[in-house]
Design a protein around this nucleic acid. Structure first.
Lengths: 83, 83
DNA sequence: TTACTTTATACGCTAATGCGAATAACTTGT
DNA sequence: ACAAGTTATTCGCATTAGCGTATAAAGTAA
């Protein structure tokens, strides 16, 4: 499954889910990319002013990547956002 | 085609490509989301400290969305990065 | 070349990240 | 309940986005 993220909150939730799936703490994830546990916390909670670099670093550390595609209809996107 | 973005530069390039495809100026795109032309310029040039919000707003204004998936092999990702 | 449009930069300002360091607050297991 | 682990939040500090405004610089068309 490939989750869609239209908001910082969705993005943060996806990162948290994947981090936990890999059984990493925020501390450990942060250590991999030179970010503090507190910063990972803010990222996962969806702080809107988070820096792009922080997001990309976290995704990379988790073995994830971004794909940009055309927006789906609201309906199908919302279904994805439920989980 | 769904471009992959692992860096701010790639992300900026994708946005620029789509903006031009829709025949919008930076000025016009910025106006849609309350950002200055100068800010769009920095986003497209790949400033690493750009705010997540700025990126998401721009994508939304262009009818794009983010999908998060597992990282591909370096080879296939690099091919995508060429364009 | 000349005129016009578009994009890149600059200055001073405010606001907010991310830092180190520390500490609440919340979870989980025993 | 208790201890241990994990996550959320705070303080002061340095850095930088994005703002308004403005202007260079680059691109495009005649």
């Amino acid at each position: 499954m490939k989750p869609i993220a239209r908001t910082e909150q969705q993005l943060g939730a996806i990162i948290r889910r994947e981090r936990r799936r890999q059984e990493l703490t925020q501390q450990q994830l942060g250590a991999r990319i030179g970010l503090r546990q507190a910063t990972i916390s803010k990222l996962e909670r969806g702080e809107p002013a988070t820096r792009l670099r922080t997001l990309l670093d976290a995704l990379t550390a988790l073995g994830l990547q971004l794909v940009i595609e055309e927006r789906e209809t609201a309906a199908s996107a919302d279904i994805g956002a439920l989980f």
